[in-house]
Amino acid sequence: MEVGWWGVLIAVLGGAIRIGTPFLFVSLGECLTEKSGRINLGLEGTLVMGAMTGYAVSLHSGSPWLGVLCAGLAGMVLGALHSWICSFQRVNDIAVGIAMMLFGTGLAFFLGKPYIQPSAPRLPSIDLGAWSDIPQLQAALQINALFLVGIVVAVVLGWMLKNTAWGLKVRVVGESADAARALGLPVDRIRILSTAQGGFLAGIGGSYLSLYYPFNWSEGLSSGQGLMAVALVIFARWQPIGCLWVSLLWGGAAALGPSLQSVGVTGGYYIFNAIPYIMTLAMMIITCSPKRTLVGVPRELTVTR
């Protein structure tokens, strides 16, 4: 069936889900970590490590879902390591994050060498487009269960942060470590748990890349999703449900470049391909101001250590 220019819309819709899902997991992980008052720049490394672990476990065990779980656990270990190092006096979380980013990617490349060539079992997809008789739309709505899991996590995480005692504790620690200590809360322990859980989510985001889309383990797999997540969280105003919308937006933007070329808009593809990065940059400029702090920013993030 001829879809012509509708193809761009379909690609952006499909891309929002396909490309957006790893963004969703990583930004949810970063959101939770930042809510507890720390920035984990190492999530890029966690993502790559998760991608490698997921692929390797799926290959050896034959079960891609076990791969997803192990990717999460690997991410959790890296997250816990980051926050454990940061719990020492006068340790800067940004610097440790950069170190963890290099460590995570380096370790994944080192351990992932034997997995570049073999083909691991792929995660199954769910057909949400069966109602439509347009094959292109059916393909775009062929989604992975992890996307649905991501939506549930976003909603539940948002609700828990707002309405549960656990969420309140995380927020207090993120707003003021001193106040938290005065209340008798174990600041370091809460941060370690939050960062480890954040790492778990980022690891799952990585396994989505290697086990579902684009479904491959290679050293060029990540195109900076882990780093951009930090910017996405700012754009989402530290709201998990905001992370969902922002991830979809970014996924759709990344699909725009190739799809425009497919309908014959052949010029300017470097610009179109750069749209997600331009959007990130524009957003950082708009949200930055020396005169005011952002709405929703956990105060501890602004404390220089």
Binding site: M1, Q136, P214, A255, P258, S259, Q261, S262, Y269
Partner: peptide, 24 residues
């Protein structure tokens, strides 16, 4: 033809393939 812009960009290569298939 779709130019991705670099030698190794897995996500964009997959997107390009999907877009081309959508165009028949």
């Amino acid at each position: 033809v779709i130019f991705t812009g670099d030698w190794s960009l897995p996500v964009r290569e997959a997107e390009a393939t999907n877009s081309l298939v959508d165009q028949g």
